[in-house]
C-alpha cells in the first residue's frame, strides 16, 4: 500500500521535474512534427487553410528538378566536407596533443573562428572569395601566374562552389579539434608506452592507439556534423543569392525548403521536403550507428 503510493509519488515528482521539457517538447517539437506530417499531405498556401491532397507533394517532388539539384548539392557537400573536416580535425588534434609549448595559443587560434557567427562568417568569406579583390585570389594570383593559370572566381563560378563551401566549413573545425584533444588526453598513457615498446612510431601509434581509443568521440562528432551538413542554410543563403539569381551549384536543401515555405508560400510542399529530410537524417544516423558497432571501442560500460 504505502510503497505503491510512494512509487506513484516518485513518479509524479519525476514528471514534475521533467515537466518543463515534457511540455516544451510536446508544444515545440512533437506537435509541430505531427502538424508537419499532416501538412505534407496538403496544399497549404500561407494565406489559406490546408487542403488534403494525399501524396501529391511527394509525387511532385519526385518530378521537380530543382529538388533533385538541391539534393545533389547537399549530398555532395556533406559527402565531401565531412571526411575532409574529420581528417583535418584529427590531424590538428594529434598535433596539439603532442604537448608542444604554446599549445594553448595554437588551440585558441584554431578555436576562435568557430565563435564567428555564421552570418558574419559568410560575410567575411564572401569578401575573401571575391574573384577580383578577395584576399584568397590576391595570394593565389601571383603563385599561379608562373604556371599560366589564374585563380577562379570562387563563389561566382559553379565549379568552385563546392571547394569554397568545404574551405569555409573547415574554418570552423576548431570545435571538433577541442573535442578530439580532450578525448585524446583521456587515453591511458600505458597504452602508448606499450606501443612504443612494440616499436611503433608516432604515426602508427596515432593510427593504432589514439584513433581506436577516441572512436566514440569521432562517431558522435561525425553524426553531429552530418545532421548539421544536411541542414546547411545560413552561409549559402547569404553567399550564393545574387541579384542575378541563386548560383545553381550553391542552392542547398534547406534554402529551397525555406523559399518554398516562406517565399513562395507553399507550406505543404515545404513540409513534405522537411519530412524527407528528417527521414534521411534518421536513416543516416541509424546506418552510422549500426556500421560503427564493429569499429567503435567503448572502454567504459
Amino acid at each position: 500500500m504505502t510503497s505503491r503510493g510512494r512509487a506513484w509519488r516518485d513518479e509524479l515528482t519525476g514528471l514534475a521535474w521533467a515537466g518543463p521539457w515534457l511540455i516544451g517538447s510536446a508544444v515545440f517539437v512533437l506537435l509541430p512534427m505531427g502538424m508537419s506530417a499532416y501538412y505534407a499531405l496538403t496544399d497549404y498556401p500561407l494565406l489559406e487553410p490546408p487542403m488534403f491532397v494525399g501524396l501529391k507533394n511527394f509525387r511532385d517532388l519526385a518530378g521537380d528538378p530543382t529538388f533533385w539539384r538541391v539534393v545533389k548539392n547537399t549530398a555532395l557537400y556533406a559527402g565531401v566536407s565531412i571526411p575532409v573536416f574529420t581528417l583535418v580535425a584529427l590531424v590538428l588534434a594529434g598535433l596539439l596533443n603532442s604537448r608542444v609549448r604554446f599549445g594553448r595559443v595554437y588551440q585558441a587560434a584554431v578555436f576562435i573562428p568557430t565563435l564567428v557567427p555564421l552570418i558574419a562568417s559568410a560575410m567575411v568569406w564572401f569578401w575573401l572569395f571575391n574573384g577580383e579583390y578577395g584576399l584568397v585570389n590576391k595570394v593565389l594570383g601571383p603563385v599561379l601566374r608562373p604556371f599560366g593559370l589564374s585563380p577562379p572566381a570562387w563563389i561566382a563560378d559553379e565549379a568552385w562552389v563546392l571547394p569554397s563551401m568545404v574551405l569555409m566549413t573547415l574554418w570552423g573545425v576548431g570545435q571538433s579539434v577541442v573535442i578530439y584533444v580532450a578525448a585524446m588526453q583521456d587515453v591511458p598513457r600505458q597504452l602508448y608506452e606499450a606501443a612504443e615498446l612494440d616499436g611503433m612510431g608516432p604515426v602508427r601509434r596515432f593510427v593504432h592507439v589514439t584513433l581506436p581509443m577516441i572512436s566514440p568521440a569521432i562517431l558522435f562528432n561525425v553524426i553531429a556534423l552530418t545532421i548539421s551538413a544536411v541542414q546547411v542554410f545560413a552561409v549559402p543563403y547569404v553567399m550564393f543569392r545574387r541579384p542575378q539569381g541563386t548560383n545553381p551549384a550553391g542552392h542547398y536543401y534547406t534554402m529551397y525548403l525555406y523559399e518554398t515555405g516562406f517565399v513562395y508560400g507553399r507550406m505543404g510542399y515545404a513540409c513534405a521536403m522537411a519530412w524527407i529530410q528528417l527521414l534521411v537524417v534518421l536513416a543516416l544516423t541509424g546506418v552510422m550507428m549500426f556500421a560503427s558497432r564493429r569499429v567503435v571501442h567503448y572502454t567504459r560500460t
Binding site: G134, A153, D157
Partner: peptide
C-alpha cells in the same frame, strides 16, 4: 565566361 565572372566580382 570565367573572365566575365571575375570582372563581375569586381
Amino acid at each position: 565566361v570565367k573572365a566575365l565572372a571575375k570582372l563581375g566580382d569586381g
